[in-house]
Amino acid sequence: MRPPRWIPFLALLAAVCLATACRESGIQTDAIAAQAADAASLPNKAGSFKFAVLGDFGVGAKTQYQLADQMATLHDRFTYGTVVLVGDNMYGGERPQDFKAKFEKPYKPLLDAGVKFYASLGNHDAREQRYYKPFNMDGQLYYTFSPTADVRFFALESTYMVPEQVAWLEKELKASSSKWKLVFLHHPLYSSGERHGSDTLLKEALEPLFVKYDVSVVLTGHDHFYERVKPQKDITYFVVGSGGKLRSGNIDRGTGLTAKGFDTDLAFMAAEIDGDQMYFNTISRTGQVVDSGVLAARKPLSP
């Protein structure tokens, strides 16, 4: 007996529904993610602004070095000039030898190539890091820099959000006419971390400013995995606390926040801003692209 004709259509419909459900719940297999990555690799255009994001990395362990090797490998074919650090740059001791073992040695190829690292401080970081030249903080706990006319970064100190810092941020965001405003700080306003999760107190203080002044992307760490959060009020939030310490299986899939999560290995993010678009890849310790996509710059709310 021949099966009814509608069975293949039903199977197709079920497959489409399943894929949609997986995408919406943020649960993707590595195979699906890898296919998506192939389809949306970085354009690597001449003249675009290329950068990487790294967080919670300074442990000095072999796995940190392996991820650092992946960063150097990528740099060979995708010449980014900036790395943004989202805090917890140094775990444990911060003696001079720690700066060597946990930063200068693993990232030596990048430092030698002239890549500039810009740090924000996490709860494990001593205040003296702001004087450490390779972190380019110029002695400041919070600061801003603009690598190109279209792009401006704002680095915040999220363990001690004094009112002056919030006022400073508002002044700087307001004054900036850059098409791309990206904020980086340690504590995530949104995160599905079972260990830490979203910092709602910080969200109350900062999110209204991000919305009002057209911040497009917020880069954070603290939770030791990678997560791209579904856009919140049109802003894309990333958790990139996967640079050295891994909290395996720590993403709570029930938060409904996750657009894509990766909590089975270390990872860093590479990104490219070209005009109105920002392309990104997230690359694991083994060189797998575990997430990728394209974001659009937010348009100003008011003329």
Binding site: Y91, G92, G93, E94, G122, N123, H124, A126, S158, T159, Y160, M161, V162, P163, V166, H187, D199, L201, L202, E204, A205
Partner: peptide
């Protein structure tokens, strides 16, 4: 202690307690 992380001090508390100079927290 060098290896101990510092606590977060939420904005609500910093808005409430007497202000401190930059060197003190």
């Amino acid at each position: 202690p060098d290896a101990i992380p510092v606590s977060t001090v939420p904005p609500e508390i910093l808005q409430t307690l007497p202000k401190l100079p930059e060197d003190m927290e």
